[in-house]
Computed example of a mutant assay.
Amino acid sequence: MALYLSGCDLRCEGCHNKELWDINSGYAMKIDEVFEKIIGTFTNITFIGGEPMMQAEPLAVLAEKIKTNTCKDIWIYSGHTYEEILKNKKYFKLLKFCDVLVDGRYDEKFFQNNLRFRGSTNQRIIDIKKSLIENEIILYK
């Protein structure tokens, strides 16, 4: 299941979700409403946008609720790099409840057809839990 979030302050050239750049696109939902929809599915959850970090604080509340009450993995896509996220307290609060981060801005110069889980080769797929334990970036396999 994917939760598409409105708002993006990065606005990557060639973005395939330009309609989500506007923070006012889509519609507002309460955290409990979103949670109820998520727990009713058999799949894991992906936070994608737009730029999820623009809504990091409410997403952290949702992510904590998901992790506390389910066994679902949480993937998050962000144009911010892992290193940038670690330096921002609001972003990090969200990150620590997630399992996998696809990081970095989409870059058309590095686009390749059929890339697994990412849009351009400069983006990394990071195992968040292992990276935090090892204190270095561990790529997801």
Rank of each mutant, 00 (worst) to 15 (best):
W21F: 15
R118W: 06
E33A: 04
K87W: 02
E64N: 07
F42L: 07
N88Y: 07
S120T: 15
N24T: 14
Y27P: 00
I66H: 00
F110T: 14
I66W: 01
K65F: 04
L62K: 01
N69S: 09
Y82Q: 05
Y27F: 13
I125V: 15
F47N: 01
S25W: 03
L101K: 09
F117I: 13
S120H: 02
I45Y: 02
S25Y: 10
C12P: 04
E13H: 08
F35K: 04
D99C: 03
I125K: 08
K87F: 03
I38N: 02
A28S: 11
I23Y: 13
I138N: 06
T70Q: 04
T68I: 03
V34D: 02
E51M: 05
H80E: 05
L3G: 01
I39E: 12
K72Y: 10
F117A: 13
M1L: 14
H80L: 08
K67R: 12
G14L: 10
D103A: 07
I126R: 08
I48Q: 02
E36G: 01
Y140S: 03
I39P: 02
D9C: 05
K96V: 15
F111N: 12
G14K: 08
L139H: 13
Y91I: 01
K93S: 14
L86Y: 01
L139G: 01
K93R: 13
L20G: 01
C71I: 08
S6H: 10
I66K: 00
K130W: 00
Y82C: 04
I48M: 06
G7W: 06
A63W: 02
E108Y: 06
G26I: 08
R11Q: 13
V61S: 04
V102I: 15
R124A: 01
G26V: 07
M53D: 01
L59D: 04
M54W: 00
G119L: 14
K109Q: 14
L132E: 12
G14W: 08
Y27E: 15
I126N: 04
E19L: 09
F97D: 13
L59I: 04
F111R: 11
K96S: 11
L94A: 08
F92Y: 15
K65L: 09
Y82S: 00
K141G: 06
T41D: 03
A28E: 15
I38C: 09
G7F: 09
N114P: 00
T68E: 14
